[in-house]
Amino acid sequence: MFDLKEGTDANLTRDRLKKYLPKDVLVMTCSDFANREKAYWNAATPIGFIFAFGAIMGFVVGAIIVYQILFADVSEHLNEYATLRALGYPNRFISGIVVQQAMILGVLGFFPGVAGVYWLSAKATAATHLPLYITEQRALSVFLMTLAMCAISALLAVRKVRRLDPADVF
C-alpha cells in the first residue's frame, strides 16, 4: 500500500509502476480495487444475479397486483366510464383518470414501503453480513420505477373500457 504525495496523479503512477513490475503483479488505485471487488461479487458469485432477479420479480408481481386492483375498480365503475365516453370524452381522458388512480396507489404504497425497507435491510445486513445501503438516488430510482409500474398496469386495466362501445354497457 502506497500513500502518494498530494497532487500526484494516481493513474499515472500506477501505469509507471506496472512497467517495472512483472505481468503477474496487479497494480491498482483505490477506485480500481473497489470496481474489481464489485465486479467479482456481481459476476463471479450468485449474489448480484439473485439480487437483480429479485428486483425484476418484485416489479412484475407489483405490476400484476396493481393491475388486479385497478381492473376490479374499472369493472365496478364500467358504467360510469362508459358514460364519460358517451358524453364525448376521449379515451385519453379515461386513461388519464385510471393512471391518476395508479399514481395515488404508487405514492401511497411507496412511503410505507421505504419504512419497511429500512427495517428489513438492517435485519438483512446483520444476518448476512452483506453491506446494504439505501441511498437517496436509489430510493428515487425505485420510486420512479414504481410509478412506471403503476402506469403500465393502469394502461392495461383500462383496455376494457377502450374496447367496448358505450352502448354495450348500458
Binding site: 358504467n79 360510469e80 358514460t83 364519460l84 365516453r85 358517451a86 358524453l87 364525448g88 370524452y89 376521449p90 379515451n91 348500458f170
Partner: peptide, 24 residues
C-alpha cells in the same frame, strides 16, 4: 375512427333510459 366518434358525441346531447350519473 375513435376520434371521429368522439367528435360527433361531443356535439350530441344524449338522454339515456337510465340516468347514468357519476355517483362520485
Amino acid at each position: 375512427k375513435p376520434a371521429i366518434l368522439e367528435k360527433v358525441r361531443k356535439q350530441i346531447g344524449f338522454i339515456f333510459q337510465q340516468h347514468n350519473l357519476l355517483n362520485a
